[in-house]
Computed example of a mutant assay.
Amino acid sequence: MKALVQDRLGPPLDVVELREVPAPRPGPGEALVRMVAAGIHPGDFFFTQGQYPEAKRPVLPGQVVGNHGVGRVVETGGRADLAPGMLVAFSAGRVWAEFAAIDARALIPLPADYPAERAAQLMPAITARDVLTASEVGPGQWLAVTAGHSLVSSLVIQMARRRGVRVLAIVRRRIQDRDLTALGAEAVIALADLAVPLAEAVRAATGGQGLSGVVDAVGGEVLTQLLEALGFKGRAVVVGAYDLRPFQAGALKVLMDLQEIRSYVYRYFFDPPAPGDADYLASVLAELADPEIEVRIAGRWTLEDHRQALEGATFRPEGGKHVLVFED
Rank of each mutant, 00 (worst) to 15 (best):
V171S: 02
V171N: 04
V171W: 03
R172H: 13
R172G: 14
R173C: 07
R173F: 01
R174Y: 02
R174E: 07
I175A: 14
I175R: 15
I175K: 14
Q176G: 13
Q176H: 13
D177N: 14
D177T: 11
R178H: 12
R178K: 15
D179R: 14
D179Q: 12
D179F: 09
L180V: 12
L180N: 09
L180T: 07
T181C: 14
T181R: 15
A182F: 09
A182Q: 15
A182P: 03
A182C: 09
A182S: 15
L183N: 11
L183T: 09
L183F: 11
G184Y: 06
G184H: 08
A185D: 10
E186K: 12
E186I: 06
I189N: 05
I189Q: 06
I189D: 02
I189G: 01
A190I: 09
A190H: 07
A190Q: 05
A190V: 08
L191M: 08
L191C: 02
A192H: 07
D193Q: 13
L194D: 08
A195C: 05
A195Y: 05
A195D: 15
V196W: 08
P197S: 09
P197T: 10
P197D: 11
P197W: 09
L198Q: 06
L198V: 06
L198W: 03
L198S: 02
A199R: 08
A199F: 04
E200S: 10
E200R: 10
A201K: 01
A201V: 03
A201W: 02
A201G: 08
V202I: 10
V202T: 05
V202H: 04
V202S: 06
V202Q: 01
V202F: 08
R203C: 11
R203E: 12
R203F: 15
A204I: 05
A204L: 10
A204P: 01
A204Y: 00
A205R: 07
A205E: 07
T206N: 05
G207N: 01
G208R: 00
Q209A: 14
G210Q: 00
L211E: 02
L211D: 01
L211T: 01
L211Q: 02
L211Y: 03
S212D: 08
G213K: 00
